[in-house]
Amino acid sequence: MHRLFVAIRPPADIRSRLLGLMQGVKGARWQDDEQLHITLRFIGEVDGRQAEDAAAVLDSVRASPVSVAVAGVGSFGSRGRTNAIWAGVRPHEPLAHLHRKIDQALVRTGLEPERRAYLPHITLARFGRESGGVEAFLADHAGLASPPFEIAAFGLYESHLGHEGASYALVQRYLLS
Rank of each mutant, 00 (worst) to 15 (best):
K26W: 01
K26L: 11
G27T: 11
G27I: 08
G27C: 07
A28L: 04
R29K: 14
W30T: 05
Q31P: 00
D32Q: 14
D32K: 13
D32R: 13
D33A: 07
D33V: 02
D33E: 15
E34G: 13
E34K: 10
E34P: 00
Q35T: 03
L36D: 01
L36E: 01
L36V: 01
L36N: 00
I38D: 01
T39H: 07
L40Y: 12
R41Q: 11
R41E: 11
R41K: 15
F42P: 13
I43G: 13
G44S: 12
G44I: 09
G44K: 11
E45K: 13
V46E: 10
R49P: 01
R49L: 12
R49A: 14
A51I: 04
A51G: 14
E52F: 04
E52I: 09
E52R: 13
E52M: 10
D53Q: 15
A55D: 08
A55N: 07
V57N: 03
V57E: 07
L58H: 05
L58K: 02
D59E: 15
S60K: 15
S60E: 14
V61H: 06
R62W: 05
A63Y: 09
V68P: 06
A69I: 00
V70P: 02
G72R: 06
G72Y: 06
V73S: 06
G74H: 06
S75I: 01
S75N: 10
F76Y: 14
F76M: 04
F76A: 07
F76G: 05
F76V: 04
S78C: 01
S78H: 14
S78K: 15
T82S: 10
T82A: 15
T82D: 07
N83F: 05
A84G: 05
A84V: 10
I85F: 07
I85W: 06
I85M: 02
I85Q: 06
W86L: 02
A87E: 01
G88C: 03
V89C: 04
V89K: 03
P91L: 01
H92M: 12
E93D: 13
E93C: 00
P94I: 04
P94M: 05
A96W: 07
A96D: 11
H97Q: 14
L98E: 06
L98I: 14
R100L: 11
R100E: 14
R100D: 12
R100N: 08
K101W: 02
I102C: 11
I102T: 11
Q104K: 11
L106R: 10
L106A: 10
L106P: 08
V107Y: 05
V107I: 12
R108Q: 14
T109M: 07
T109K: 10
L111C: 10
L111A: 10
L111M: 12
E112T: 11
E112K: 15
E114F: 08
E114L: 09
Y118W: 08
L119V: 15
H121M: 04
I122E: 00
T123A: 02
T123F: 05
L124Q: 01
A125F: 04
A125T: 04
R126F: 03
S131Q: 13
G133I: 02
